[in-house]
């Protein structure tokens, strides 16, 4: 009971922290892009699973929008508190560290999924809804992919932010270099690519016609689960050993 109160209190604080006014406006604009492109698809008189999946879902929703949102929130949930020094108020409490990490992770995942997943769902409904059952399945698959990807990115960079203060830049580098360039050059990276986990997970509902989706859905789910478990465990481990600097003293 007491730990549930603490959990929901931390979630509440984290949500308010992540949804700063100005930032939310920019993020909503970002999330609006896939929806606008879906509208454009319809305006061009096209309702196609294939080209929509490639042009909007693959190149924008899952390659740019989802990672950016999840990296921003994931690295900010602890990162902003460490930067500002408010982490002390959170940690000087008789709350088990795993509960703190869990509350932060769930908040970050919720916000990322709401933003990136919501945008993908709305865009998918606009463009793929009229196609019928296949279209709805494809749209659901895309949302599932974004959800799995968001969860992976969020927990990875939640952990990274406890190890370095430049988690966000590292996240961006990971996204540009690892996911962006290297995974095209070296196909073996697929087992270590969040984008591949997301695409593989989507295959469980509908085989999306996306280029170089290399993992089966089972493998993708397992690898994603391992990634989340390992990174969150690392985060708990790190938070238990968390040290404040001596201060300007």
């Amino acid at each position: 009971m007491a730990s549930f109160v603490a959990f929901s209190e931390i979630v509440g604080i984290t949500l308010r922290q992540l949804m700063g006014r100005r930032r939310t406006v920019w993020l909503l604009l970002l999330a609006a892009l896939p929806v606008l492109l879906a509208v454009l698809f319809r305006a061009a008189g096209r309702t196609e699973i294939d080209s929509y999946s490639r042009i909007v879902f693959d190149t924008i929703a899952i390659t740019i929008l989802m990672p950016l949102v999840a990296i921003l929130f994931g690295s900010g949930a602890f990162g902003a508190e460490i930067d500002d020094g408010t982490i002390v108020y959170l940690l000087a409490k008789p709350v088990p560290r795993w509960l703190v990490v869990l509350a932060k992770a769930i908040s970050v995942m919720a916000v990322s999924i709401a933003l990136a997943g919501g945008s993908t769902a709305l865009a998918g409904a606009i463009e793929l809804g009229p196609i019928g059952e296949d279209g709805l399945k494809a749209a659901a698959a895309q949302v599932l992919g974004v959800v799995v990807g968001s969860v992976c990115y969020a927990s990875l960079f939640l952990a990274v932010s406890l190890f370095t203060r430049r988690a966000l830049v590292i996240g961006v580098g990971y996204m540009l270099v690892w996911e962006g360039a290297l995974s095209f050059m070296l196909p073996g990276i697929a087992n270590l690519s969040i984008r591949q986990y997301a695409l593989g997970a989507a295959n469980a509902i509908y085989p999306l016609p996306v280029q170089e989706s290399r993992l089966s859905s089972d493998t993708a789910f397992i690898l994603a689960a391992v990634l989340v478990a390992v990174t969150l465990a690392l985060a708990v481990w790190r938070l238990m050993r968390f040290e404040l600097p001596g201060g300007s003293d």
Partner: peptide, 22 residues
Amino acid sequence: AIALVAYVLLAEAVPAAVFAIG
């Protein structure tokens, strides 16, 4: 940093997407 990445990636991707749609 994240604004810069978002701007450059989207300024590359969105015109390509619009072109492909059209």
